[in-house]
Design a protein around this nucleic acid. Structure first.
Lengths: 327, 327
DNA sequence: TTGAAAGCGATACCAG
DNA sequence: CTGGTATCGCTTTCAA
């Protein structure tokens, strides 16, 4: 059996209470007592049982991270940042991958709710109402989406799209296709919105190709539709889709970027390593993760007053790599 | 406050004990009682507090996953598989990224130990002895490494290297460089071992370039050393390193694969998307994750007898993409 | 088949 | 400053 506070108390010759105090708030006990407790704890290799602690304090020291697909390189980067930031504040991370299954999100959250002090929902796919049901129960911060009344951290998708369109227009493109991501993705809707606005204000024609899975295969599947359209450039929901598009276009003999220029979104590692490089809208992924943790910690300690939720919008930046004008 | 078993008991008009039984082992109570309890639980949205449960059962229903770097695409794939398999058995996953810092591994494990029933250590960097100290305390399964007395799941690195060397030799290469990964990585040592054996038995000259970080930057840093050597082909510790090598070699005007052929290891998604494709040794990542969970579950329920630990070795398979013979 | 009650390990309150 | 004790939510005897 593991070593408990009792063992430490016995070895140190003090009461459990003193052990607890000595460890939690060292100034509250006599230096001598503290010393004895600390040595005893060290010798026994004592680590408090957080489950037991959480029972009484109501705090677990854990945060839950729920995301749709760890295989999308965007998320590991965010999770890593979350991890790092959480550890700074002595929080551990529960990870749950929903496999893009919106229906498992809510049950998952419910099941985990008692083991965490709050959630970081990355690009959740569940309906607004389903999520709202948690409003007064569990502290939650939403990443890459906005759902009242939760604090959120999002990327400035509209500005990213504005940059992308400006870039393509400057290169001489007049007709640009958009290959959308999952229909229930807020980011997808937000990007499309930004794209429409940018297209409208520049007079550029936007050809919407519809929705596809946010994966390489999704891009591959959409490529033929893009090639069948009059577009000379295509903006993809994210880099994976963009890479799929490139892959299939190239395979079909449609040179990228000569025949069709491709712009992605996210700036995952791959984007800089393919050749020619993938032009993409970079998102400050680490900042999103870090800000998410900060907001969540804040929410957990201070609670949300009834003011409007905090909404942090992180900048996006176009990274130009391989794109060119139409031939 | 959250809904507890008491609330359910009150609503159902039975005792806590009955609620507990009705939910845990439905056959143990009268159908009528069970019905009442189930409806009450459903109406209240009751989810048992796992922390409280773990206090008495000694089981948490969680497994801890410790890995060196989530930014290496190899790991997310493994974690996803772990996640999926763990969920099948109703286990939740605690994730910890150590950032390649071997010194934080052990403290991390100790801190998490009480919250999990067992650990899955992915490519741990800590010393054997440090890990062995946990032998009788915490069930642990080690992935991508072998440490007595823990069960392990590894890739058949030697066979992978054999295939790689056979391939390069068949293409006509006589001198092959190896860019190693972290010095404290078991996989690196195992791959090097396999490579030496393969080189020796084929008469091929192996030029060892030394160790580098298992990242793209690590590969970039090693590229010049490779180009300065007489090698016409290079095997990299993993795909990230390989991609870094390609990147830098190309930048320096050394065509890949004409001037120098590159072989990676892992077969991450990127490998198939760069062009020309990266020839690499594929590892059954999902299988490793799944097998790890299976072994851990087994260890947790049956305990390890004093027989030798189970060692599962997963096959590796060379995936030939862009490599060619020397010019 | 059911209910009452005893803990699991830690914290927090209240006396002393 | 310290020790005793109630308590958190749940499981598990032990009786009834």
């Amino acid at each position: 059996m593991a070593v408990t506070i009792k063992d430490v108390a016995r070895l140190a010759g003090v009461s459990q209470s003193s052990v607890c105090r000595a460890l939690a708030d060292p100034d509250q006990v006599r230096p001598e007592t503290r010393e004895r407790v600390e040595t005893a704890a060290r010798n026994l290799g004592y680590y408090p049982n957080r489950a037991a602690r959480s029972l009484i304090t109501g705090r677990t020291g854990n945060i839950g991270v729920v995301l749709p697909d760890l295989a999308n390189p965007f998320f590991p980067t965010v999770v890593k940042a979350i991890q790092t930031q959480a550890r700074l504040f002595d929080y551990a991370v529960f990870l749950s991958d929903t496999d893009e299954e919106s229906s498992v999100e809510v049950p998952l959250i419910k099941a985990l709710a008692k083991q965490v002090d709050g959630f970081l929902l990355c690009s959740p796919r569940a309906g607004d109402d389903e999520l709202k049901a948690f409003a007064r129960q569990t502290p939650m911060v939403v990443l890459n989406r906005r759902v009242t009344p939760f604090p959120s951290v999002t990327a400035d998708n509209a500005d990213g799209m504005r940059q992308a369109i400006a870039h393509l227009q400057a290169l001489g493109h007049r007709r640009v296709a958009y290959v959308g991501g999952p229909r229930n993705s807020w980011s997808n809707r937000d990007r499309l919105r930004g794209l429409r606005a940018a297209a409208a204000s520049t007079g550029l024609e936007l050809i919407e190709i519809g929705n596809t899975a946010p994966t390489v295969d999704g891009g591959i599947a959409a490529a033929d539709l893009v090639l069948a359209s009059p577009a000379t450039a295509v903006v993809a929901y994210n880099d994976l889709v963009a890479l799929g598009l490139i892959n299939r276009c190239t395979a079909r003999g449609a040179a990228v970027p000569e025949r069709i220029s491709v712009v992605g979104f996210d700036d995952i590692l791959l984007a800089g390593l393919v050749s020619p490089g993938l032009t993409t809208v970079a998102i400050a992924k680490e900042q999103i993760g870090r800000a998410g943790v900060d907001l969540l910690l804040d929410l957990m300690t201070n609670g949300h007053g009834d003011e409007r939720p905090t909404r942090r919008v992180m900048p996006t930046q176009l990274v130009v790599r391989g794109s060119t004008g139409p031939r």
